[in-house]
Design a protein around this nucleic acid. Structure first.
Lengths: 138, 138
DNA sequence: GATTAAATGCAAATCATTTGCAGAAAGGAT
DNA sequence: ATCCTTTCTGCAAATGATTTGCATTTAATC
């Protein structure tokens, strides 16, 4: 099944209407496959001059609330959004801004943290900052 | 030695002038000992009506650039700042907003990540989100 | 105390994000 | 297909956080 159809069904499952604006936003996030700022998503939606930035924001917020999208904040990039698919983390190059998805090194750590603190754990987020091999050689 | 004097020396070491405004900001961060928003720091500076919010921002940015302060972004709290002392991470209660400092579970992981990706690692940041024991019982 | 570069006060500007409201569109029922 | 209700969007304006320009003040050095 096409990825886009999977996402349309995710919306229906949550009783969120499948509007052409929502589809346009999800299409951009699917196609780019890296975390994007609201303004970047807006800029990448072509041929839809009536689709407003406020609609992009409203939908991103809705999707975040419904746990379909993850909202992140990277040093140097500000607030970005990505579709929530597998659980992974990010490695960001401080020179060129490249964002790499990496496997989460703390898959089983929440239980330990729960035992230590009594907190009921829901989620965690990790950012690694460094310089990529390409930028290092220049 | 008083903590504040240590911080004055850190400023001098970096050739940053020791102004009363800087001291006021650092005092608040020392006293509260949790990450604070710029506006919160500003609000907690008493008896200094001439000290402006823009000065707080300017100094926080300077201290971040000089790696004396860490700038963070917590779900539900927006941008916050803390003095950079030991390396630690945070556990945030999504109900009451309480922020707990915890030992970093990835002290030795950067080398592995370097070997896997070729990135030169500089820093990492982890946020854990959950519900604290007090909030769970209510 | 005089000198100079850096820092601050102040007000205004900028930028990202949110909001109110009237019209448009989606999904369910007929 | 049409009607109905609720949700969503366009639009413009408001908000809130953060930054900036410029004249004045101040810290550090001599």
């Amino acid at each position: 099944m096409q990825k886009l159809l999977v996402w349309e069904n995710k919306l229906r499952d949550k009783n969120i209407r499948v509007t052409s604006q929502r589809i346009a936003i999800i299409e951009v996030l699917l196609k780019e496959a890296i975390p994007l700022a609201a303004g970047d998503i807006f800029a990448k939606i072509k041929n839809r001059p009536e689709l407003k930035l406020s609609t992009v924001y409203r939908n991103l917020n809705l999707l975040v609330d419904e746990r379909l999208v993850r909202k992140l904040n990277f040093k140097g990039k500000g607030t970005v959004f990505e579709l929530l698919e597998d659980h992974h983390q990010h490695l960001i190059c401080l020179e060129c801004g490249d964002v790499k998805s990496i496997q989460c090194p703390l898959q089983n750590y929440e239980e330990e943290l729960h035992n230590d603190t009594g907190y009921e754990l829901y989620d965690h987020n990790i950012e690694f900052y460094g310089v990529c091999p390409a930028c290092k050689n220049s």
